[in-house]
Design a protein around this nucleic acid. Sequence first.
DNA 1: ATTTAAGCGAGACGGTACGTCTGGTCTTTAT
DNA 2: ATAAAGACCAGACGTACCGTCTCGCTTAAAT
Lengths: 223, 223, 223, 223
Amino acid sequence: MRKQQTLEYAEEPRRRGRHRSLEAKAAILKATLQLLERESLRKVTSDAIAKRAGVSKATIYKWWRNKSMVALDAYLAGMTERVATPNTGSAEEDFTEQLKSLTAFYTSTLGRLFCQFIAEGQSDPGFLASFRERFLYARRDAARVMWRRGVDRGEIRSAVDGEIVLDLIYGPTIFRLLAGHGSLNDSESEAMVEAVFGGLRRLDYQRPPKKAGSLVKRRNGQL
Amino acid sequence: MRKQQTLEYAEEPRRRGRHRSLEAKAAILKATLQLLERESLRKVTSDAIAKRAGVSKATIYKWWRNKSMVALDAYLAGMTERVATPNTGSAEEDFTEQLKSLTAFYTSTLGRLFCQFIAEGQSDPGFLASFRERFLYARRDAARVMWRRGVDRGEIRSAVDGEIVLDLIYGPTIFRLLAGHGSLNDSESEAMVEAVFGGLRRLDYQRPPKKAGSLVKRRNGQL
Amino acid sequence: MRKQQTLEYAEEPRRRGRHRSLEAKAAILKATLQLLERESLRKVTSDAIAKRAGVSKATIYKWWRNKSMVALDAYLAGMTERVATPNTGSAEEDFTEQLKSLTAFYTSTLGRLFCQFIAEGQSDPGFLASFRERFLYARRDAARVMWRRGVDRGEIRSAVDGEIVLDLIYGPTIFRLLAGHGSLNDSESEAMVEAVFGGLRRLDYQRPPKKAGSLVKRRNGQL
Amino acid sequence: MRKQQTLEYAEEPRRRGRHRSLEAKAAILKATLQLLERESLRKVTSDAIAKRAGVSKATIYKWWRNKSMVALDAYLAGMTERVATPNTGSAEEDFTEQLKSLTAFYTSTLGRLFCQFIAEGQSDPGFLASFRERFLYARRDAARVMWRRGVDRGEIRSAVDGEIVLDLIYGPTIFRLLAGHGSLNDSESEAMVEAVFGGLRRLDYQRPPKKAGSLVKRRNGQL
DNA sequence: ATTTAAGCGAGACGGTACGTCTGGTCTTTAT
DNA sequence: ATAAAGACCAGACGTACCGTCTCGCTTAAAT
């Protein structure tokens, strides 16, 4: 949307005809956000958005493919603050700080939208792709910087794949967020990062000699 | 459902009146599963289930609150295989094996239902709770056993909270599954478990003396 | 219904098995009547009847073909009073009296059922036939007696078909009852009978010579 | 509907927004009529109408309160022929002619709808009122003209209330139509009008002196 | 100044799923 | 044998939402 707009309205000479109403656009995004604070994305109808924005449904569907896309734009536009990339000198502290503030955000009203987007994406692969590209990757890029610093500084084992690092740090929280098991707060966040950095392995453990054939045979081993 | 059934039909003397048709129940679950192999939960309609099962819609809604609940029952009933709890003598190997088979399952047709349930749960808290209680907790109990063994054996640091351990191991995979970033295969699973066990921290790293006030101030630090 | 019962249960020595519950039958009819005092036949459900009668739906459908038949029986059983056939010595007075009391009845709660039966009969010819045979014809027989007396006495023109006489007297009231136009009360009833007996024709009217071809041609001349 | 349309679409300047599709309206009415030629109103479903009209059910329910109202509109729209008001110079002949053509119509496929509407009206007072106002009263107005002429001409006794006259003439036929007793054909129609005009009373009858107390006492004298 | 190409609000539309309801049947156990 | 309990099937009901479309009006660049 943003890109399009830039292309369409800024670079080229202005096209003939009435221009897109920026008031309408802003009203739509604002109305969407306000509605989403009270109801889940599924329950917010496009009619409601149109009505609250004082806008016609046609205008909405002219500029957005569907309701979810409007919500995504509203979400992105609503997050004025830039991504925080703490730089404390310690990658572990950086991640801890970030995970804490991220958890605080995700458990807020607006933050819960993250879950709704993931949910919507499960039955709309195109939307999921948009969500990844326009939201997730941006955030991961920021986090990747923190990881990089840690590696460069010699803090983080370079053998561990960066992508896995990110999923290791954020995955558990997001899982809890989506499934609703387990609590989410500062001390949990701290404990998670500590565990990820410290690892589960007890260093003084002497592994007994492995016996062959000890693997249990099975077909479906779920979680 | 299961519990009810046990209570209603097995333990008590049979009640008066026509009994719940087990054929109908089985047909509904089977039809649901078959339909879910081809379409997402959202697209499978209750009419289609009724038709394919040769059953009236009223019968469905008599026993299940809504479509999602039918799907959940169908899913649980369809997973005939017991939960695999590998016991190789090494917790790390156990988790690796389990994560691998779990990933294989979750990326299968039926397994993708997991995502649909999580998605459905985002706009239906009651359903999410059911899902947790009837599916997630059972799986986690099994995994907890593996963790316990590792702790008892001296393999796993007892300082790390068991729940965090589980989320650390399964969270990243589930995050990838839901968000669709990152690949899911045996080697990724192995790498993940290795990373979780080994930790990110480089042991030979000498932490520099901490400087005060180095924390970056920010309000919204997303992901 | 009644006859069957008498035959099966009263005259023979009691047969093996559980006997038909006369209480059930009475309860069904009573419950039906009570429900019909508050709701139209369409809105009274067979479930409601069963519940209120403390009886199983199967029992209802075992003895009656459908809901309407139950209502018809309930209606007939509820009209304990015999048909009034006034005998004042004047057919006109007889009919006036009867039409008045009939109107009073038909505008009562129970009496409105008459309309419901006619209504039900429009989409269930079998029921309409039953209704005619078990209710209408009986009432008409009684009225026919009054007509007969009038003819015998020389009061009523014998040239007029008896069936037409009955419909002339009762048709207008029933039409008003069903269509809801026009009022229904004693003076209207009196006026109706007076008009039917007196006729519309003015006796001193000299009919002008008829002109040929004066009939307007048309295809559909509705009411 | 008709009135609305006139107000909304003809008199005012066209309103903003997409206009009501007259094609859809026509298709709905046509489909309804065609279905009603084969099935009773009860058995014609709104789904069937929608399907046959190539229209969404929502469109139907947007403009009509329920199925019956659609049928009423279809019925009224389908009666293209104007109301016949024969003018033969004789009121009796006028009524005879009209009753004959009316009977012919009411016993036709489409005409039987009249009964269905009356039936529907018994459990839906609002619909009955609509039916009266939009159909019955129009027809009665036409018939009233014929009565008026008869009165003015000196043919019909002015002492008889006009409304009663109408019900006297049409009530018997409608009663037979609804209850299904008695035949309906030209000669019956003729006989009915003749009887109404001639009256039942034998003119040469000498009434015997009335005896007091001859009235039979009763509470419920039904028909 | 006029044309013309959009964009807009209003709101009707087709499609389709939902979950509910009712009528009437059938099954099981109790009497 | 017949009852009560109550599950069952068929299928209509009216509602809701989605995303599309049409209409008449408005705006602004191009002529």
